[in-house]
């Protein structure tokens, strides 16, 4: 098990290096930091001095190594736009995005899985057909449109929920949480639904097709022949067997939710990393963009590792090959 984790971590190193290379390349090709820092009037001597001070006269690989070395220590330099350390900016914004993403994933799972089970068990029922039609809408409508529609209905017409922002937050150490205040929770509802809706429909359709597949298997027939209750068969024997593909997709989608919360955060002016990223793009704030890129890559790698470990927890057949044996 330990060897497996180590090997997966080693495998992810090249991935992260390639992403680091791309983010590093942005500095070289998008704008010139030296001219940005020197402003309009400077002498050639000042320029060379700054170049030497920043280490820009060093060979490419030395510069890249320094970038990676700093990145590993969480050091991404100063934001061009806000003149504050990038790491600090991201750390401030991360809680907002993470809370939003986990709520969205929670909505997607808690609603998507039962709906998938239901539509898999009773594919011909009216409710199942309604769910499927609804899911088609969820898949085909773009996120920003859903967000705007929700705002129109629940914020503008009904006035039940706020249309933007995060509400009041409570600081728990460096983590600002919106979970502990009424306005924070209310502000979370619409963005979480908007962000989770696509994943919800995806999970529902996946669980449904897996469920229909599993219900045809011999071991489900045998479970029926053993006279087990429907509850034990459907939610124990069948659902557990659908979980491996579902875990894969949910894991990858969680990464996607965090990385691409950008649209939802923009629509709802949610003060998270996505909004920070969009603002940085519009002002060519390279250090923030580079750091964000690397962070997302790390996130995907970590989530994939967790997904692989979850397979082992769910499926005993995978455990057999490694160490335990017969």
């Amino acid at each position: 098990m330990f060897a497996f984790i180590v090997s997966r971590i080693l495998q992810s190193v090249p991935v992260l290096l390639v992403v680091a290379l791309i983010s590093f390349a942005m500095f070289a090709y998008v704008g010139d930091p030296v001219s940005i820092m020197l402003g309009q009037d400077f002498t050639e001597a000042q320029r060379t001095a700054l170049v030497a001070e920043l280490g820009l006269d060093q060979p490419f690989f030395v510069q890249f190594a320094r970038f990676v070395g700093n990145a590993v220590q969480g050091e991404f330099g100063l934001s061009y736009r806000l003149s504050r350390p990038v790491a600090q900016l991201i750390a401030e914004r991360a809680p907002a995005t993470l809370e939003l993403a986990f709520c969205a994933a929670g909505v997607a799972l808690l609603v998507g899985v039962p709906m998938g089970v239901y539509t898999g068990l009773y594919p011909r029922s009216l409710l199942s057909r309604a769910f499927l039609t609804f899911s088609l809408i969820g898949v085909s409508l773009p996120t920003f449109l859903i967000g705007i529609l929700l705002i129109l209905v629940f914020a503008v017409w009904l006035g039940w929920l706020p249309s933007f922002g995060r509400g009041d937050t409570v600081a728990l150490g460096w983590w600002n949480t919106g979970f502990l205040t009424r306005s924070g929770l209310k502000a979370l509802i619409l963005p979480a639904i908007t962000l989770g809706l696509f994943q919800l429909t995806l999970i529902m359709r996946l669980v449904r097709s897996e469920m229909m597949e599993v219900l045809r298997t011999d071991y489900i027939k045998f479970a029926r022949a053993r006279g087990l209750t429907n509850r034990a068969i459907n939610f124990g024997h069948a659902l557990k067997n659908t979980m491996v593909p579902v875990i894969t997709v949910v894991g990858l989608q969680l990464g996607a939710i965090i990385a691409f919360a950008i649209v939802t955060e923009t629509v709802f002016q949610w003060p998270g990393m996505g909004l920070l990223f969009i603002q940085s793009v519009s002002s060519a704030d390279i250090p923030v963009m580079a750091a964000y890129l690397l962070l997302i890559a790390c996130l995907f790698v970590t989530i994939n590792l967790i997904v692989d470990l979850l397979y082992y927890a769910v499926d005993p057949r995978l455990r057999a090959g490694r160490g335990k044996g017969h």
Binding site: D218, Y219, G227, T229
Partner: peptide, 29 residues
């Protein structure tokens, strides 16, 4: 009805199927 029959299956009538490789649920001991 299904529920009454369920109580008979396994308890009154046991069943053995053809392929032992597929009749056991792989995820349960």
């Amino acid at each position: 009805r299904y529920e009454q029959m369920r109580r008979i299956r396994g308890r009154e009538i046991g069943a053995i199927f053809q392929d032992p490789l597929t009749t056991l649920n792989p995820l349960y001991t």
